[in-house]
Amino acid sequence: MRIAVGGLNRNEMEAAVRKAAPDAEVIPTNDMQGASLLKQGKADYYFGACNSGGGAAISILIGLVGYSKCCTVCKNGSTPNQQEIEDFVKQGKIVFGMTVDSLQKTVPLLVDALEKYGTAN
């Protein structure tokens, strides 16, 4: 599993992904390069955070990779929901946005869902 990470508080995101998925290859990047990594098949997934979970996190990827592959797994003011995250993964989403405030709780659930149902296994 190769996960590109970008967006705000990227260091925190990178650390959270490495902790949740010790075996995964983590690629620190930004949204524009992350989009081209996904398109070239050099990364399987992209994780990004911002204050709303949909702005700086994934808005550029929606434009470049396509809305149908992107989702916000945790919106501002809410807590991550395991069922919802698994549903997104089953739908074949590969770009995941979340809020900076929630990323510590969201990343482990997301990694878990990807390990169970993801397309890159």
Binding site: S59, Y67, T72
Partner: peptide, 17 residues
């Protein structure tokens, strides 16, 4: 205003949403 809303606008305007 919301930067996160911006990418949804063409999805809606162009009839995909």
């Amino acid at each position: 205003f919301n930067d996160g809303v911006r990418p949804f606008v063409p999805e809606y305007l162009e009839g995909r949403m």
